[in-house]
Nucleic acid binder design. Structure first.
Length: 574
RNA sequence: GGGGCGGUAGCUCAGCCGGUUAGAGCAGAGGACUCAUAAUCCUUGGGUCGUGGGUUCGAGUCCCACCCGCCCUACCA
């Protein structure tokens, strides 16, 4: 079995994330990780909070907390919502960890030793009123091109021209509005990406199986010519630059954030006393397949900056074997936005419905080929049709009927005949397709195929009509019900990557006497069914006790939709 | 400005290397059934595949131009 290293883009520490963040990296990564674990592969699924950078410092200031304490609290809050969504991280780390500090500094030294780091003196904006250096974006002033008064130091939102803060007329701090700012010389480290461009290009072009979304973004940057990139900042919060003359400076958040993939792996090993196990995933790890998940805004950092860091180190650290990029999920009238609090956030989502409702809908509508839009009407329609009517109702109708007529044990009945043969033929084909989708990271199609499998079960039941069979030939009805119950067990196994809670409930229906207490996060999950098992449909034998669980998925009503539209500000027409 | 993605039935989307009458789900229409969360199953109507050229025996699928929508563009991450 192959070793799979799976990472999700690191959610920024600043606030609870929204459904767009979830569907753009963490959720599909989780589905993939769960699927591979069920297949028996050795999987390490890593994520972490990205804690450095100016926004974190400012948010802490707003909250009246020291930044370290602010981040600790936010990390805990995020970890809580991810647990609520049943994201099965093997480790959820923090980019501010000692492990990441050590590794980030290590990479800094290695790059310098290999001649990929250069010191340069640049003009940085210093705000005396705020007593801090300001990133370009936090300097505002009048645009020299169009006269727009609130242009940011990096770009004018009005005329979209790219700017340098020194070009602004009447520059002032975006924090307090103070004009008491100055341009100070500051010494910084630059990563000489330009020298690594040929190696990056070779690497990108050798990856012919990547999504075009990923490779086209990477090639665009390479084709335009890589600029050397400043990787240090004049800030207090971050990984300190341990180099003479760089006291009080830290590495830029985008230098240390991806290194935290490695850092978090080391955190994982350290926390469990696994010693150097972390290195087996990252260093000289040719037996590991590394798959990254991220939204498209993150692609440049994962195809250019991070690989440049790794290649420039001259050490055999792992680079991604596959990068799965996603487009955006939009909400009424625009993007989900953490800063504007626009959209549905993960904590409030869990307040109104359990994780599986969201997980299924988001995977079934993952923005793989284009941006997608979330609407409550679409959400409710799909949940009702697929989860409640198709899957949930099947489970309920089979179990309640069988209990009423044959008691609380799986009935025996006749031997399987041609209809069962036809059913399993169909299932084998569909399960093969489903696996192909998951292997190929085609999440929308995977959900579609899963839904088709549920539907085939309903068709089988209608074809056999045990409520009619029972009048003439009870043994025939029993065969049908026993077969249907095995379909429920099949659903329990193959639905687990997408709707783990429902899968767990389904597994609990039949008392298989195997102390089937598989945990949620981190556990290996149920063994993935072999195609031969599908042909025989014999997981659940005659005589097995069963219970009828409560309704798996409730139907969402027009009143629900109305209430949620109101609560989450969906009044703007899309 | 540059680049990317998309524009296929009312809606959300599949359609790989060009090849018989363009598919699915939902919604609509008709029917069946009554075990079930008024669920399910069967049948069915509906599309000049953004526009205009071109290549080809043949194009939704390749090439060119244009139009529309969204996104990215290196100091927000």
């Amino acid at each position: 079995m192959t070793k799979y290293l799976i990472t999700s883009a690191l959610p920024y520490i600043n606030g609870i994330k929204h459904l767009g963040n979830l569907v753009g990296s963490m959720l599909p990564a989780d589905v993939y990780a769960r699927y591979l674990r069920q297949q028996g592969h050795e999987v390490l699924f890593i994520c972490a909070t990205d804690e450095h950078g100016t926004p974190a410092e400012l948010a802490a200031l707003d909250a009246g907390l020291p930044v370290a304490e602010f981040c600790r609290q936010q990390h805990e809050a995020q970890a809580g919502t991810y647990a609520g969504f049943k994201l099965s991280f093997d480790h959820f780390g923090r980019s501010s960890s000692p492990q990441n500090r050590e590794l980030t500094q290590h990479f800094g030294h290695r790059l310098a030793d290999n001649g990929y780091i250069e010191e340069r003196v640049t003009k940085q904006v210093y705000s005396r009123a705020d007593e801090r250096f300001l990133p370009d974006r936090y300097v505002i002033g009048t645009c020299p091109h169009c006269g727009y008064a609130a242009a940011r130091g990096d770009q004018c939102e009005n005329c979209t021209r790219l700017l340098d803060p020194t070009q602004l007329i009447n520059p002032r701090s975006a924090l307090g509005g103070s004009e008491d700012i100055e341009f100070r010389d500051s010494r910084h480290l630059y990563l000489l990406q330009s020298r690594l461009a040929p190696r990056l290009r070779d690497w990108i072009t050798s990856r012919t199986d990547w999504p075009t979304l990923t490779t086209s973004i990477a090639l665009k940057w390479l084709n335009e010519g890589l600029e050397d990139r400043g990787i240090t900042r004049d800030l207090d919060w971050g990984v300190p630059v341990d180099r003479d003359g760089f006291e009080g400076k830290v590495y830029y958040v985008w230098f240390d954030a991806p290194i935290e993939y490695i850092g978090a792996t080391k955190e994982h090993s350290d926390a469990r006393g696994l010693g150097d196990d972390w290195r087996s995933w990252w260093y000289d790890a040719s037996d590991v397949r590394y798959v990254q998940f991220m939204a498209k805004d993150n692609v440049p950092f994962h195809t250019i900056t991070f690989p440049a860091t790794i290649m420039g180190s001259g050490e055999p650290w792992k680079v991604a074997d596959y990068i799965k990029g996603f487009n955006w999920l939009n909400y009424y009238g625009g993007k989900f936005s953490t800063s504007r609090r626009h959209g549905v956030f993960m904590d409030s989502a869990l307040e109104i419905l359990p994780a599986d409702y969201w997980r299924y809908f988001l995977i079934a509508n993952a923005p793989e080929s284009d941006d997608a839009t979330f609407t409550w009407e679409h959400f409710a329609a799909q949940v009702n049709k697929d989860l409640a009517d198709n899957l949930g109702n099947f489970v309920n109708r089979v179990l309640t009927f069988s209990r009423k007529r044959f008691g609380e044990q799986v009935p025996a009945g006749a031997e399987a005949g041609p209809p069962e043969q036809q059913l399993t033929d169909q299932l084998v084909t569909l399960l093969g397709e489903y696996q192909s989708c998951l292997d190929g990271l085609q999440f929308r199609k995977a959900a579609q195929t899963l839904r088709t499998i549920w539907s085939v079960a309903n068709s089988y039941l209608e074809l056999k009509s045990p409520w009619l069979e029972i009048r003439e030939d009870p043994a025939a009805a029993q065969l049908t019900l026993r077969t249907a119950m095995n379909l429920i067990q099949l659903f329990a196994l193959i639905s687990e990557p997408i709707i783990p809670d429902a899968a767990r409930t389904l597994r609990g229906i039949f008392d298989l006497g195997d102390a089937d207490d598989l945990g949620d996060a981190g556990a290996a999950g149920s063994p993935w069914p072999a195609l031969d098992d599908v042909r025989s449909l014999s997981w659940v034998a005659a005589g097995t006790p069963f219970t009828v669980p409560p309704v798996l998925f409730r139907k969402l009503t027009d009143e629900d939709i109305e209430a949620w539209r109101e609560r989450f500000g969906a009044e703007t027409a899309a």
